[in-house]
Design a protein around this nucleic acid. Structure first.
Lengths: 250, 250
DNA sequence: AATTTCATTCGGGAGAGCCGAAACACTTCT
DNA sequence: AGAAGTGTTTCGGCTCTCCCGAATGAAATT
């Protein structure tokens, strides 16, 4: 855990991040943004091209499909992803809304899979997208099934960043809600991450009650009234349960 | 184009490749396989963890969802992927088979998107998966719309590797087929990559007649007779055409 | 308790990466 | 055309960083 680092590795991935962020770039442009000498950036890009993870076409450098490949291979091995199988598609068809499978990684809530129902609003949601745990229904569902001290550690490290004026920023309020989530078996967020959106999410636990992820349905508040919420809550709870059972057979 | 390399970058990605290949690994295991000193591998893993692209849980190192993220962001910016929009899904529903969008990258044929129809056989096909251009219908469709000298370069660099006893390994035969593909507007492969599978694919060209990718339907030979092939050929040609038109509006 | 296996830390030496400067390739002015 | 501007690529010597053997620490196994 000492900072046994490696400058080259760090820089290489900073360049990759920058390429991903802007969908590619040229030598001097990147050198500018990263505040590195052009020749250095040039060297790195050359090295990255040799690895096959970056390619260059007419001086424009971009990441390659290698990232897709590595990402999908890893996802394919993720048990909860295998266990959820067709559930997301079924929920999307049944609710018409935007459905996601999410997991925790490095103190954050990450989308693993997305399925858009016929009426889904266009969210900027793609596999790998990250968000704070406290500001989203699936994140809260996940936190609710972690030990309290682990939750506290995450709060200490990450803080409770405000994403909308509805975001929970008070630890006490958060802990109270986590208690409530455990009782009712699902989490709900009313514009806490994106104004005007309501998300309903159920946690997926394994047989040792370890939290593995959460299934989440998102839609505009206008379309999802009290009765519809209860309906969706039942659906996500049912699917989370099916997924839990499937976990034993992956 | 000089070998302006960087050992650290190369090694870092070799480790990533190894992790992706085996779905994770431990220090000494990786050191063994990569023939590097354990302490060195340890240092690299440490550095990779710091970048966020690798994570460690109880001494087991794995790639993180960062790869998914970078991969999906890049894919989202790929024009042909945007242009194909719901076509893959439509074809999958219509044919019931396995449908893919493929592009050329670094002399290879890469899957960009997959859609499985209700009767699809279970292929080991995921976004980012790679295969030789000459041994698959989409690859041949792509080659057919490259300048001949570029095709020759690819043959020179990559060879015509035999994947089944049906694979084309003679350049002359290949060039003849490419001519035929250009005439009929689609490519077909009969167990040239996977024994017992037939794949039918149409090229997607942009308005400058530049090749952008290919749409492909795969299924077992037993289920796809002469008449069905003609039917599927029409479908992929139609979709490729729709995609071409969409290319102007992305 | 002893033994094996594996992860982690340490540190001195060597070689690898670093980056300024110069050369080169292309555009866009005057 | 020529000149000036913009950005990429090559070069090379100095320095600093990565490298890896060896020692230590931590766990599992006998």
């Amino acid at each position: 855990m000492t900072g046994a680092s490696n400058r080259s590795v760090e820089r290489a991935f900073r360049i990759v991040d920058e390429l991903a962020e802007n969908g590619g770039g040229r030598v001097s442009e990147l050198a500018d943004r990263l505040e590195m000498p052009v020749s250095t950036v040039h060297n790195y890009l050359q090295a990255l091209v040799e690895t096959g993870y970056v390619s260059v076409d007419d001086k424009e450098y971009t990441t390659t499909t290698r990232f897709l490949e590595v990402g999908h291979r890893q996802r394919h091995r993720l048990e909860v992803f295998q266990a959820v199988s067709d559930e997301l598609q079924d929920i999307a068809a049944e609710t018409g809304e935007h459905v996601t499978l999410m997991v925790e990684e490095n103190d954050q809530c990450v989308i693993v899979a997305v399925q858009e129902g016929p009426d889904a609003v266009n969210l900027f949601a793609y596999p790998g997208a990250r968000m704070p745990l406290h500001a989203a229904a699936p994140g809260k569902a996940i936190l609710a099934h972690m030990p309290d001290d682990r939750v506290q550690e995450i709060i200490d490290r990450q803080g409770l960043i405000e994403m909308t004026n509805q975001t929970i920023t008070d630890p006490d309020v958060l802990f109270d809600q986590l208690e409530e989530i455990r009782e009712q078996g699902y989490a709900i967020d009313e514009g806490e991450r994106i104004a005007g959106m309501v998300c309903i999410s159920a946690p997926v636990l394994d047989k040792s009650d370890e939290i593995r992820g959460a299934i989440c349905v998102c839609g505009p508040q206008s379309r999802i009234d009290e009765a519809r919420r209860a309906e969706i809550a039942d659906i996500v709870k049912r699917s989370a349960n099916v997924t839990q059972v499937n976990l034993d057979y992956v």
